[in-house]
Design a binder for these strands. Sequence first.
RNA 1: GUGGAUGUAGCGUAGCUGGCCUAACGCGUCAGAUUGUGGCUCUGAAGACCGUGGGUUCGAAUCCCACCCUCCACCCCA
Length: 451
Amino acid sequence: MAILTKAPRGTQDVLPEQSAKWQHIEKTAMKVAETFGFKEIRFPTFEHTELFARGVGDSTDVVQKEMYTFLDKGERSITLRPEGTAGCMRTLIEHGLLNGALPVKASYLTSCFRYEKPQAGRLREFHQFGAELVGAASPAADAEMIAMVSQIFEQLQIEGIELEINSIGCPECRAKYNEALKEYFHSHEDELCETCRERLDRNPMRILDCKSPICHKIAEDAPVILDYLCDDCQAHFDELKERLDSIGIEYTVNPTIVRGLDYYTRTVFEFVSTNIGSQGTVCGGGRYDGLIELLGGPKTPSIGFAMGLERLLLLMENTGVSFPEESTCDIYIGSMGTKASIEAANLVNSLRAEGFKAECDLCGRSVKAQMKYADKIGAKLSCIIGDSELEEGKVKVKNMANGEAEEVELDELIEFVYEARLGDVFGSLEDAVCEGVSNLTPLNIPPEINF
RNA sequence: GUGGAUGUAGCGUAGCUGGCCUAACGCGUCAGAUUGUGGCUCUGAAGACCGUGGGUUCGAAUCCCACCCUCCACCCCA
């Protein structure tokens, strides 16, 4: 296929038909975050390569083989963000937000880029909703973040998703654990797969993740990080569990969760589904107490997470979660002849100024074709303006649902549409008034009323 | 990066033991079915370089090779 008409590998177009679903997810996530005190933050799509190399970690797969890195015309090494946290932290440090009131609560909707082989739930450009809670070391912060994710899933009416948590300790207890791991795996060195043998001294924790049956078997009896936590890390993890129990959030402790980004410390968690193929992690996050300092900021304990929006959407579609219905055109104003077409355009314009969805003919089509179009776009009302209507100043307005028509003065068309819509929402205009709703237009109706 | 499956109009498919394919069908789109009104029905039209590029052959959507894309698994992660 021609390169001009084909999207690059691993990218996805969102068609108008799909966009309402995206907006629903995005709005819900941002709104829930707002109730938790988060404010949106926006930061660049690309950063200096060094930021990710340092922040995410030189030895990670993401940095080693998945980044979109290039030299710009000024010979700077630039990288399209492979994740959100590093850029977000850079922004907070650069603008001195960490010198203000802590914790800082920032949420974002971004696209991320990783050069990977695409498959279900894995794209080269993907979108995530992320949130960072910066400057709070307490397990209360961890619990709040996890609660926020659960709340988002609940609001979205998602079921069949499970929370797994783990603690990977602080650098001190992790060092002890790594030693224990190395010792254990060295005793099985000959049986390990090739990649694991290479990992053994550099990053033994990754062997726990290996899917090769033999390594997996060996890993089953390996020392568990949870047994090597220092007192502080242990207390932190215990309190987190206690808090989750108390709020009523179910979880399982999975000691094999080892996040692939170097910055994580202590709490790590994943929300996993079995309904979207092998890329089952819909949301992943954890604490990163050392990251900000590593990037040159003040020592600031923090925790964050990211949700894969494509995966979330996939999950919702695969499990039959319903999405809110989209509102359709309130009135289609058809016309015959140029004069009438101009009048129709004026009427439509006035209606739109009031916040109604109104449409008219732009193709010079026959009356019949215009009516068909009105039907296709789901117009609730329709009318056709011709010479006689202009003369008499009246139109027949048809209710598309039942075919009944009513004669309306052209001057009063806007009021008519108004009453018809209020009637739909409240049963009748009288009911609306009874409910104390007055002076409503589609523009000032509270969002919970799906006008 | 490794392995497997796929690729025909906007969508879903038929054709694929090579010539009746100047590519068929359904949905969708557009236009008509007596003068200015949708949903049903009927008629008609537009729309495909049969993923791309090579090759075999008198002749290829159909056979061979390469590449690309999509999907699935590994890997990795959201």
